[in-house]
């Protein structure tokens, strides 16, 4: 029968506990962040935490470990030296929540572009509020029939459909 246990640890406890767990036969299957903004009022837990799913095949048991990330920026000790699994997983958590993993060799963005600003899965991240710079189209002018359109400097009026308005004088 499957047994499932839950534990809540601090960063230092997690760093000390991880090698012990590995030697007991636990393997790390998943590691990801949670932003508990809005859930923190009812309990004492802080805003950021990571959730780790561990599996021990020998006695068919699972363990869920919550590790609190404290400080600014929130930081947690890396477990990449204990389980290689954490390599990608900690990078993703850093990418999405800005949680810094101390001791990770290559803590860089993994899913988002390197120059991305902000941490998308945080609850206070503004979705859809990134300004998109729409540049106005240059006006095209055709002076003689058959001529390729040239980009004109002058302000040519356009109607509501974007068609160039024709002055009476041209006709």
């Amino acid at each position: 029968m499957t047994t499932i246990t839950h534990e809540t640890l601090s960063s230092a406890e997690w760093a000390a506990r991880a090698p012990v767990l590995r030697d007991e036969g636990w393997i790390l299957l998943d590691l990801h962040g949670v932003d508990r903004l809005g859930l923190t009022e009812e309990d004492e837990r802080g805003r950021f935490e990571i959730v780790c799913q561990l599996l021990k095949r020998a006695d068919k048991s699972r363990m869920t470990v919550h590790v609190a990330a404290e400080g600014n920026p929130p930081a947690i000790a890396s477990v990449t030296r204990v389980w290689g699994t954490a390599g990608f997983a900690e990078r993703e958590t850093y990418d999405m929540y800005g949680i810094v993993f101390e001791g990770h060799d290559d803590l860089s963005r993994i899913l988002m572009p390197d120059e991305w600003e902000g941490y998308p899965l945080r609850k206070d991240y503004d979705v859809g509020k990134i300004a998109i710079d729409f540049k106005p189209q240059p006006f095209l002018q055709i002076e003689t029939p058959g001529q390729a359109p040239t980009i004109g400097e002058s302000e040519v009026g356009t109607d509501e459909l974007g068609q160039i308005k024709q002055d009476d004088a041209d006709e």
Binding site: L29, D30, H32, V34, D35, G38, L39, V51, Q53, G84, T85, G87, F88, A89, E92
Partner: peptide, 15 residues
């Protein structure tokens, strides 16, 4: 859902 995370096997297998 307040948070929905999927542990995708490909993500970890790729490592």
């Amino acid at each position: 859902p307040y948070r929905c995370h999927v542990r995708d096997p490909s993500f970890y297998n790729l490592q």
